[in-house]
């Protein structure tokens, strides 16, 4: 299992424990979609995502669009630098609308 799940009153907190790449995408898609359908509110923590490629990004985009369809609440939190890099280069920060905490030292 590449994710840690903690369920609390319908609020799921998921910590992604692996890279989000083409190699992990298939398994991760199943796991994360399961969580999204299961709970009303899902918080996905990305601090341990050491690497993200286009497949990983697609996964984020998929979850975001499913959130709307399924009328759920989804938050990505604690973006790792790898994730921030991808969102920034594609100008997608606003699209997800999640507050991003910059790692210390880069706040300026």
């Amino acid at each position: 299992m590449s994710i840690d799940v903690e369920n609390n009153n319908g609020v799921c907190r998921v910590v992604v424990k692996d890279e989000m790449t083409i190699y992990t995408a298939a398994a991760m898609k199943t796991d994360l979609m399961d969580q999204l359908t299961r709970c009303d509110e899902l918080e996905i923590s990305l601090q341990d995502v050491s690497e993200m490629d286009s497949a990983g990004l697609q996964l984020m985009l998929l979850l975001k669009s499913e959130e709307q369809k399924l009328k759920k609440e989804l938050r990505f939190v604690k973006h790792s630098q790898a994730v921030i890099d991808v969102l920034e280069i594609l100008d997608l920060v606003a699209h997800f609308g999640d507050p991003i905490v910059l790692p210390a030292g880069e706040a300026q």
């Binding site: 083409i22 995408a25 497949a55 697609q58 985009l61 998929l62």
Partner: peptide, 15 residues
Amino acid sequence: TFTHDMPAANEMDPE
């Protein structure tokens, strides 16, 4: 970034 052709979740192939 566009994901025009992305199907619904159950049909979406992450690869």
